[in-house]
């Protein structure tokens, strides 16, 4: 009886642990960058990484980790987010290859690039 219970616990726990590894966003990112959406952290008035390289059709997500809002805007007007408050996110899917320069439209010293291959 004890043995069976223990085994049953393993059966439940193992898939849960696996699921946690696969679904946890930061783990998923470091384990497999191709399969997960690319992320740019907006922190301390800068973009990290400031140049991000992704394959075509990738969705890039910016997440604001600052205590003040930021606005993600491409230099040529192709995309522009609403104001992102702390922990807000904005995503854009890059269909074609090219270099896309962007900045924060309210703190224009903040600049970054997405290189789509």
């Amino acid at each position: 009886m004890r043995r069976k219970l223990f085994f049953g616990g393993l059966v439940v726990a193992l898939p849960l642990a696996l699921a946690a590894v696969i679904l946890h966003p930061t783990r998923a990112k470091s384990d497999d960058t191709k399969a997960s959406p690319a992320e740019v952290r907006v922190d301390n008035f800068s973009f990290g990484p400031d140049t991000l390289t992704v394959p075509a059709n990738s969705t890039v997500t910016w997440v604001n980790k600052d205590d003040v809002p930021h606005v993600i805007a491409s230099n040529d007007g192709l995309f522009k987010s609403k104001a992102l408050d702390t922990d807000d996110k904005y995503s854009y899917t890059f269909a074609k290859a090219g270099t896309y320069s962007y900045y924060c439209s309210i703190h224009p010293k903040m600049v970054g690039k997405v290189v789509v291959q």
Partner: peptide
């Protein structure tokens, strides 16, 4: 002086 700010500018 807070509108139409250009990338990299002031």
């Amino acid at each position: 002086n807070v509108m139409n700010l250009k990338a990299g500018g002031l």
